[in-house]
Design a binder for these strands. Structure first.
Lengths: 340, 340
DNA sequence: GTGAAAGCGCTAACAG
DNA sequence: CTGTTAGCGCTTTCAC
């Protein structure tokens, strides 16, 4: 071991200069070896690697980031870590990022544009090489911010006209559910959540089957949806109490927690699922299989979303030139279970 | 705007020197102003701040980290992002870290000691100021790694003899469930999961009531528990099929997904919950309220765990001197619902 | 092939 | 109070 003073008592870390001294080469050569740059004699290379191994040397990524202007860090902004869907997406992002030598800084925006903005600023100051930003609903103001002076960014789980994005087609998701209800002979229709593209797809397909938009019931209002885990049940109760169901109603919920809330509310009021109330959720999170009745849900390929998002982002990072917009549009799938 | 060449076309970032030039002061003064160091004339301070505002300047955290040997970055290592419990903990960690000016790098260890080791190494190379490491089960080899040349680290959700830690007492959790079953007149007992401290607490309390350890049924084996989301149901089915229940059995599951698996398996086999099979889970995740029957579960104060862990870690980071071990031991609470 | 040297953008002495 | 100066540990010319 070399005789070096520890300037930080808590974590001794060798430096390239030390390795260089030990190996009898210049520090630049150590750098070359570690970066696999061509043109280092086998002998010196071996000498360097020997000491790298002996000291379990790892180059300081901060210094590297500063010098190379490349941090190998990406930022992942999610609207809600407590939502299993986003937790899943994050897990896959982390997995693929790590696999490519990138670390992930997480930040929770709570879906607030204000937070999103601040987070993007701070990520930029941290020199992240790229940003993956998960949006819970349609467009957000951040997009403007994102378009100007930031590292490359990719919108995840929503489409965007101005930015690269990776997501399923929510419209298609809505279509799927509408067709399903239609086939099952449901005779009244509701949408549980804020009106977005899912709603649009649902409405349009129902419309083509002769169902007027005014006949589609809206459950919940348009802004409470963030704290969804608790609010779903209450909203569903409110709705069912004041809207007696006759025949068979199909409820398309914007996400699984809401769908559960609806099922539980129906049971609470003595209605049968799926006979009187047929329920379909969205995201196909693991709870779907673990509740009774099991929950039908529109499935998003989270692994693919996470993977493609990382791939696209890294491509943007690698290529210094701005390229044409890419909107990866994946296909949702209806997973039918007992609730519908 | 100053005339500066952008060396990185994609993200122009002003530097302190530029601010200094604009404000007519030295770069060091800019640094002082931004760090709130005492002893800068109001006039110069104002001049600096003016330009900081105008250019929306944010100091480069990488450079800052390198120079100050302080990154304001902490690493959070979790065994499983897909487990809602850890997602929750992570959310709270992120929240409190951000609140204190720290960003969080997440890494998924999948509970593999090998990964944990590699992650800790890479986090160290990234100069994180501290590490929060969530352990899914008892002690891990990483602890040895953690004890030597790393930044301060705190174990989260498990106790440790060698490290700072923040967690509930799992033994106490086991006691709670045992007492609950005893009070409810359950007459046979099972534990669903690998034997750990929860099991020990359960066993000991049952023992004091005269139940022999050999009479406590073990469900599942000791190593599959990681991919729990799918395996719970199967294991429960296997168990119930080969062990006909007579009277009333109490099943204490190591976590909520397992508990759900047990309930579903019981239903599948025509058994009534909680009359024939009484089930209690662990972690009290949001699913507990969203399934029918609602699931009894031992609750961990995730917010407090996350907060105290961050607080403790920051204290360690702040204080340069190693202090006495701190093991924050919180209390679990049994939330009784319909399943028991 | 390889070393010397100039930064990357900042913090932190050290002089005045 | 404030400017000058020396690094932090690395990447990257630029010579030889």
């Amino acid at each position: 071991m070399p005789e070096v003073g520890l300037k930080n008592e808590r974590a001794f870390m060798a430096t390239m200069s030390e390795i260089a001294q030990l190996a009898g080469v210049s520090q630049a050569t150590v750098s070359r070896v570690l970066n696999g740059s061509a043109g280092v004699s086998a002998a010196k290379k071996a000498a360097v690697m020997e000491w790298v191994r002996r000291l379990d040397f790892q180059p300081n990524s901060t210094a590297r980031a500063l010098a190379a202007n490349r941090s190998h860090l990406i930022g992942a902004v999610v609207p809600d870590l407590l939502n299993p869907f986003f937790a899943e997406i994050l897990a896959h992002i982390e997995h693929h990022a790590a696999h490519n030598g990138y670390s992930v800084i997480v930040a929770n925006s709570a879906g607030e544009p204000e937070n999103e903005r601040a987070i993007v600023k701070s990520l930029r100051a941290r020199q992240v090489d790229g940003i993956l930003i998960g949006l819970a609903s349609g467009d957000s103001d951040v997009i403007d911010e994102l378009k100007k002076q930031t590292p490359p960014a990719v919108i995840v789980t929503q489409e965007s006209n101005d930015m690269d994005s990776v997501s399923v087609s929510h419209i298609e998701g809505g279509n799927l559910v509408a067709n399903h209800f239609l086939r099952e002979g449901v005779d009244s229709f509701a949408f549980f959540g804020p009106h977005d593209e899912k709603y649009a797809g649902y409405r349009d397909t129902l419309g083509r089957a002769g169902v007027r938009e005014s006949d589609i019931h809206s459950i919940g209002n348009q802004d409470w949806w963030l704290n969804m885990l608790s609010r779903g049940f209450e909203s569903a109760m409110d709705y069912l109490r004041s809207n007696p169901v006759q025949g068979r109603m199909g409820v398309f919920a914007m996400n699984d927690p809401f769908a559960l809330g609806m099922i539980n509310a129906a049971h609470e009021l003595g209605m049968r699922v799926p006979d009187q109330v047929s329920v379909v959720g969205f995201d196909n999170t693991f709870v779907c299989d673990n509740v009774r009745p099991t929950l039908s849900s529109v499935s998003q390929p989270t692994e693919e979303i996470g993977r493609r998002a990382v791939e696209l982002l890294l491509k943007r990072i690698e290529a210094s030139v701005p390229a044409e917009l890419v909107n990866v549009e994946l296909h949702p799938r209806l997973v039918r279970r007992e609730s519908s």
